[in-house]
């Protein structure tokens, strides 16, 4: 649920990075944080375990610029990917305006990708949403892995409806900003469609 502040002429939107455990959601945010001009970002918050696994969420506020005199701000969140944190994932989806599904390109994670995507659909339903209602993009991460599945094969499996998709390597940053731009465009286009 975006928040429009007519007094400060600001629009704030929430984007959630979703995906199976260790697929690189936090790494996406860390790369965005590292490469963004300090004037345009806030502090990155990570609620993680001692072993640096996401416990609740990561949070990164970003300013993108102005559109029609409104400052656009995006709040980026990740969910904890591990299966047993499902209650937390549901909470983080509250008020989501757009999503990035980060898929792990390793063949061993094929099943985990499918399960996580189905979990996203199930959890959206709890908020009265269908995945098709939501602006979302697909990221095929870890393209640098030697055994990475072909993108075309992953697309068939995970993206049959053809939402915008991006090949990425979050550790080197390849495809990270393209993915973010893709989802941000989807969110703004959706606001336009809603006649906000």
């Amino acid at each position: 649920m975006s928040f429009i502040n007519y007094a400060a002429r600001e629009i704030n939107c929430k984007i959630v990075y979703y995906g199976p455990g260790l697929c690189g959601k936090t790494t996406n945010l860390q790369y965005v944080y590292a490469k963004t001009n300090p004037d345009l970002k806030g502090k990155m918050i990570s609620l993680a375990t001692e072993t640096e696994r996401t416990l609740f969420f990561d949070f990164l506020p970003l300013a993108l610029g102005e559109i029609r005199g409104f400052k656009t701000r995006f709040h980026l969140y990740t969910v904890p990917g591990q299966v047993f944190y499902d209650a937390s994932r549901k909470l983080i989806l509250k008020g989501v305006d757009g999503a990035v599904f980060v898929a792990d390109s390793q063949p061993a994670r094929e099943e985990a990708n499918i399960e996580s995507l189905e979990n996203l659909q199930t959890n959206l339903v709890e908020h009265g949403l269908e995945l098709s209602d939501l602006p979302w993009v697909m990221q095929y991460n870890k393209r640098d892995m030697p055994d990475a599945m072909p993108v075309e094969e992953m697309r068939k499996l995970l993206n049959p409806t053809g939402v915008p998709d991006f090949a990425a390597c979050a550790t080197s940053g390849e495809g990270v900003f393209e993915t973010l731009k893709g989802v941000a465009k989807g969110v703004l286009s959706n606001l336009r469609k809603m006649g906000i």
Binding site: I4, I67, F70, L188, L191, R192, G195, I196
Partner: peptide
Amino acid sequence: KSSPEHSAFANITDEEIDNLF
């Protein structure tokens, strides 16, 4: 006030969205 004349974003163009990036 939720009519088109009060809308801030209804008429934004693809170009304006692209310019943000």
